[in-house]
Simulated scan of single mutants.
Amino acid sequence: MSMKKKLGLGIATAALGISLVGGGTFAYFSDTAETNGTFAAGTLDLNANPTTIIDVENLKPGDWMNRSFTLGNGGSLDISKVLLETSYEVIDAEGGDNAGEDFGEHIRVNFLWNEDKAVLGPWSPDNVVYYTTLAELQSMSPDAVANEIFVPFFEERGGLQSGDSDELHVQFEFVESGGDQNVFQGDSLELQWNFTGYQGEGERR
């Protein structure tokens, strides 16, 4: 074998050796692990029972009506507050404008208390702690399950926990003004109360 062929074969063998050594340098054991996650949003499910809180006829000034209703949380998340929105429509028996008088200004809402948060015993019509007219209530958004609306002494703070419910007592009164209220004879008022429940603040989970 010529010197040139021997030299070429030697170089090729050396290159192969270097290649094998280099490849061995990067050989290592390996393994894999997999993780996954799930994000499931909770639910708010505010319900009222009964849905018709009051339905009365033949009212006269001075009449009052006591009613009860329940707000419940059927969702999986706690409700931190329940805001009350009020709207109504007056239907004038004569088709007029009641001489500029608003029937809603003569219907007063006497909030008694939230029975499930009160600690003062059975509720009574004498225990009126907050009142306003329907007309004034239209511009307000009170929290129906908070302690500041009813009485200040509660075992339970505001809000509705998941699966919980609060029984609320309210008194409606056709206020006797002491003046001429004949413009309201035959009139009717259709009231709508919308309760909106809101979640609490986010928290570390």
Rank of each mutant, 00 (worst) to 15 (best):
A15E: 10
S165W: 01
R108P: 05
T133P: 05
N66S: 12
P50Q: 03
T52M: 03
Q185W: 05
H169C: 05
S68E: 13
A146C: 06
E34Y: 14
T132G: 09
G37Q: 12
T38C: 00
L134E: 03
G10N: 08
V82T: 09
E85M: 05
A27W: 11
T35L: 05
E201V: 10
E115N: 08
D31I: 09
G186E: 13
G42D: 05
G37E: 11
L46I: 12
A12R: 02
S188W: 00
L112M: 12
Q192T: 02
G75P: 09
V90R: 08
T70H: 01
F69K: 00
N114W: 03
E105H: 09
A135Q: 15
A135M: 12
H106D: 10
K81A: 13
P61S: 09
F174P: 08
E203Q: 14
A118D: 15
L59E: 09
V21P: 07
T13F: 15
V90H: 09
N49Y: 13
Q161W: 02
S141E: 03
G186K: 12
G121T: 13
T35H: 07
L137V: 10
F184R: 06
E136G: 10
G163C: 06
T35D: 02
I18Y: 13
A40Y: 08
F195S: 03
K81C: 04
P152D: 03
L160T: 07
F111R: 02
Y28S: 14
G96H: 00
A15G: 13
S87H: 07
G179I: 04
S76G: 11
Y28V: 15
P50W: 04
L77F: 06
L16K: 04
E136Q: 13
E101F: 12
N66C: 09
S30N: 15
E136M: 09
E190H: 01
A27D: 11
W113R: 15
N36E: 13
A41P: 07
I107Q: 06
Q185E: 15
A12I: 14
E89Q: 09
A48E: 10
Y28L: 10
E155C: 02
D97L: 11
P125H: 12
M1D: 14
Q161V: 10
S80P: 00
N98E: 01
A135W: 10
D78R: 03
V175W: 13
V56W: 10
